[in-house]
Design a binder for these strands. Structure first.
Lengths: 341, 341
DNA sequence: TTGAAAGCGGTACCAA
DNA sequence: TTGGTACCGCTTTCAA
């Protein structure tokens, strides 16, 4: 223990196992046995060492122990950002699971950039994380190969890459189809879909499996309910939306791939003096918490993000513990009818 | 490179510097020079090594390099949770700064538990993080000593611990005082303060420096504007709130220590058919993004969370780079008048 | 320009 | 029950 000279700056370093060993007149191995509760050590020796460790303010160096053991008890989480409450709830639930299981989190935010995603993943692999939970932006064979090369347990969430990776999602396609049916049952005759974010995703050539599934579900629903041609908008322009509303051939509604879009649509309606749900129905997806504070209460789909995060972590843990089977999990959901339909 | 036997499980391990050295018939030191752009190496040798590294799929082991260098290029971030959009925006801005400066993030969520906070900090110290950014729950001499013992650069945010730590905050006291003045100028005669979360914080004996400052600012303001006794409520009971509203001796308003409270109050008003701002004014704090989607647009205080995160990171970097001066930073803010006053 | 070797702090195995 | 020691993969210094 003590002050080491380094670059002319004095840096204090915590006591090491060797320091303790010297002070107690035992070997490093013995100190290790005491500190880490391994057996084959006399009670008194152990107590003496523990006491010394405490006095010297010993703090284990995880880097060193990880290096020696080849496992870091850390998992890497990669997602786009935390601004979307869905992501933050997701990360939070994983953090909680990890903590409960003695793991820690290394978080990488990609801000929608595939390049940063790969860099981040590479970095995490280099940090010897025991596993990776990714909401992937990337896709394609090259990307798949890169991930596979890592030789690290990986669980993908939401955006599926291929059947080579254990995957967790909600069945967006089925859900959207059901949503359309429900809306029709509630009397809506025309349903538009506002697929905001889709174009950007296409431009960046990002993985949009999940977006696609939801969109396909909408199309499935429209077909099944014989509503005519799907009406898909991709931005917040008021004109086309207004045209759609004014068409006067049956009660209209707008279905959205996630809540942020629905909130924005609701706001547009308010600004143009269109009342919800009297003049138009709106439905979102994810049931983010803030919906509880907005009137009218938006219809949405509760995917139990916490459960989804838990599932993802459990699946990862299973792989880490040696299960080499690739599995796909579909998590539960509940449709929230709210007051906007 | 290759497969090592370990616990009867075959684990593939990426090529190491030694593997490359052997394959190229050079020493490990030379490989290091090539890989890390150090000088004193012939161009051809370098190219040959780089080529081999690529072919062998070399991926540096950060743990090992951190251990050897004694620095991890990682900073630890400790905060309560991500459910509050304020926190998630804060973490996100730090992540961004970190990334731009070649650092990575180790995130610990405390979920309001002081115990978990200490555990987390200890863990991060053990991971040899280069520095810590904390929104502390802890307080007191014992806690201060524990942090100091870490001998790690630390920046506290929002909740101040003592003058021993570099600290970043917005001046909640001054801001709240100004807010009260502004409200009075807008014609409000009676202003209540809904200090939700305060009692819980007292019970857990958590650091509530920031909450206190805001509350004190409110009291300062009430005194300065001669509004009589401060009216402080600590939960969402409707009765006392209703009594306050009905007192009929001047236009009432409710000031809240953060937006989540203001949103909730707005919702209560809506449910009881009280119109905002006609019958009561409401003001929050933090200007979280979702306010843009809620009507009426709540008055709030924009603390530029991003700037706050940036400042915190810069301050930390300065300490990491050897500045031993303790500094305190007050960041900018803007009062958003919104439509709720 | 390169090689050799001694660390970094812990872990794990074998011998005593 | 203990000690001794060879790693883990990378960095750094000193010599050649």
């Amino acid at each position: 223990m003590g002050a080491h000279e380094k670059n002319k700056k004095v840096i204090f370093i915590s006591a090491t196992i060797k320091d303790i060993a010297i002070r107690c007149g035992v070997s490093e191995g013995t100190v290790d046995r005491a500190l880490n509760g391994r057996d084959g050590i006399k009670k008194e020796t152990k107590e003496r060492i523990l006491q010394a460790a405490k006095e010297m303010g010993y703090r284990p160096n995880h880097l060193a122990s990880c290096l020696a053991r080849g496992s870091s008890k850390t998992i890497g989480v990669v997602c786009a950002g935390l601004d979307n409450p869905f992501f933050s709830a997701f990360v939070e639930s994983i953090e909680r699971m990890a903590y409960e299981n003695g793991y820690y989190l290394n978080l990488i935010l990609t801000h929608g950039s595939r390049e940063k995603e790969l860099e981040g993943i590479d970095y995490l692999a280099g940090r010897q994380v025991d596993g990776l939970i990714i909401i992937p932006l990337g896709l394609g064979e090259e990307y798949e190969r890169q991930l596979l090369n890592l030789q690290i347990p990986i669980v993908t969430v939401y955006n599926r890459i291929s059947d080579k990776f254990t995957h967790v999602e909600v069945d967006g396609r089925q859900i959207m189809k059901n949503a359309v049916r429900m809306m029709v049952e509630k009397g809506y005759k025309r349903i538009a879909y506002l697929d905001s974010g889709y174009e950007r995703s296409v431009n960046l050539n990002n993985n949009r499996y999940s977006l696609n599934q939801r969109r396909l579900g909408y199309i499935d629903g429209v077909e099944q309910e014989v509503l005519g041609e799907p009406v898909i908008m991709t931005n917040y322009d008021w004109e086309p939306l207004e045209r759609f509303l004014k068409a006067e051939d049956g009660k209209p509604a707008v279905l959205c791939p996630f809540d942020a879009v629905a909130i924005r649509v609701l706001d547009m309606m308010k600004q143009h003096g269109i009342s919800v749900p009297e003049q138009v129905g709106i439905m979102g997806f994810d049931n983010i918490r803030v919906l509880n504070s907005i009137s009218p209460r938006l219809a949405s789909v509760d995917c139990e993000i916490t459960g989804l995060g838990r599932k993802a972590f459990q699946a990862l843990l299973q792989i880490i513990n040696g299960d080499s089977e690739v599995r796909e999990y579909i998590t539960e959901y509940t449709i929230i009818e709210g007051e906007s339909l």
